[in-house]
Simulated scan of single mutants.
Amino acid sequence: MLERITVDEAVRALRPDFAVLIMTAEGLTNGPSDEQSADWLAGAAAKAADDPHVEAWREAYRAFGAKPQRTRPSVDALLRRADALPSINRVVDAYNAVSVEYALPIGGEDLDAYQGPARLVRATGDEPFDVITSGEPAVEHPSPGEVVWRDDEGVTCRRWNWRQCVRTRLTENTENGLFLLERLEPYSLDRLTEAGEELATRLRAISPGAHIRSRLIGGR
Score class of each variant (00 low, 15 high):
residue 11 V to A: 02
residue 47 K to C: 12
residue 48 A to Q: 11
residue 54 V to C: 01
residue 196 G to I: 01
residue 90 R to V: 00
residue 183 R to W: 04
residue 134 S to W: 07
residue 67 K to T: 15
residue 119 R to S: 14
residue 56 A to L: 08
residue 70 R to F: 13
residue 71 T to N: 15
residue 24 T to Q: 01
residue 190 D to H: 14
residue 144 P to D: 12
residue 180 L to E: 10
residue 214 S to T: 15
residue 143 S to E: 14
residue 107 G to V: 07
residue 62 R to T: 10
residue 173 N to R: 14
residue 90 R to S: 09
residue 156 T to V: 15
residue 86 P to T: 08
residue 61 Y to E: 07
residue 36 Q to S: 07
residue 154 G to Y: 13
residue 153 E to G: 14
residue 31 G to L: 04
residue 150 R to G: 12
residue 20 V to Q: 10
residue 81 R to Y: 11
residue 117 P to D: 13
residue 69 Q to I: 04
residue 45 A to I: 11
residue 41 L to K: 12
residue 37 S to C: 04
residue 124 T to D: 13
residue 24 T to V: 02
residue 150 R to E: 15
residue 72 R to Y: 10
residue 14 L to I: 03
residue 40 W to E: 01
residue 21 L to K: 03
residue 121 V to N: 10
residue 98 V to P: 00
residue 143 S to F: 10
residue 95 Y to I: 00
residue 90 R to K: 11
residue 41 L to F: 03
residue 193 T to F: 06
residue 120 L to T: 10
residue 10 A to M: 06
residue 38 A to Q: 09
residue 184 L to D: 05
residue 145 G to F: 09
residue 138 A to Y: 09
residue 112 D to P: 09
residue 73 P to H: 00
residue 42 A to W: 11
residue 160 W to Y: 15
residue 106 I to P: 00
residue 72 R to P: 07
residue 21 L to N: 02
residue 150 R to Y: 05
residue 52 P to I: 03
residue 97 A to E: 00
residue 3 E to N: 14
residue 127 E to D: 11
residue 116 G to E: 08
residue 43 G to P: 07
residue 34 D to Y: 01
residue 10 A to N: 10
residue 137 P to G: 09
residue 106 I to G: 00
residue 102 Y to M: 07
residue 132 I to T: 04
residue 76 D to V: 12
residue 116 G to W: 10
residue 196 G to R: 05
residue 126 D to M: 14
residue 206 I to Y: 04
residue 167 R to C: 10
residue 59 E to L: 11
residue 110 D to V: 02
residue 105 P to M: 11
residue 119 R to W: 13
residue 33 S to W: 05
residue 116 G to T: 06
residue 18 F to L: 15
residue 124 T to Q: 13
residue 173 N to P: 02
residue 164 Q to T: 07
residue 60 A to N: 03
residue 16 P to N: 12
residue 124 T to Y: 04
residue 25 A to T: 01
residue 205 A to K: 08
residue 127 E to R: 12
residue 39 D to P: 00
residue 147 V to L: 12
residue 18 F to Q: 09
residue 195 A to I: 01
residue 157 C to A: 07
residue 43 G to Y: 08
residue 149 W to H: 10
residue 70 R to G: 07
residue 159 R to W: 08
residue 78 L to N: 01
residue 216 L to C: 07
residue 96 N to A: 02
residue 199 L to R: 00
residue 174 T to E: 05
residue 169 R to W: 13
residue 194 E to L: 14
residue 93 D to R: 03
residue 60 A to V: 02
residue 175 E to F: 05
residue 9 E to D: 15
residue 136 E to Q: 13
residue 135 G to F: 06
residue 124 T to W: 06
residue 157 C to V: 09
residue 79 L to P: 04
residue 93 D to K: 01
residue 6 T to H: 15
residue 25 A to S: 09
residue 64 F to V: 05
residue 39 D to H: 07
residue 160 W to K: 06
residue 186 P to S: 01
residue 80 R to S: 10
residue 115 Q to V: 15
residue 135 G to L: 05
residue 91 V to D: 01
residue 133 T to I: 14
residue 76 D to T: 02
residue 72 R to M: 11
residue 12 R to W: 15
residue 11 V to I: 06
residue 11 V to G: 03
residue 162 W to I: 03
residue 77 A to C: 02
residue 152 D to W: 06
residue 157 C to N: 11
residue 63 A to F: 01
residue 147 V to A: 13
residue 145 G to V: 05
residue 156 T to E: 11
residue 21 L to C: 03
residue 183 R to S: 15
residue 85 L to Y: 03
residue 132 I to F: 05
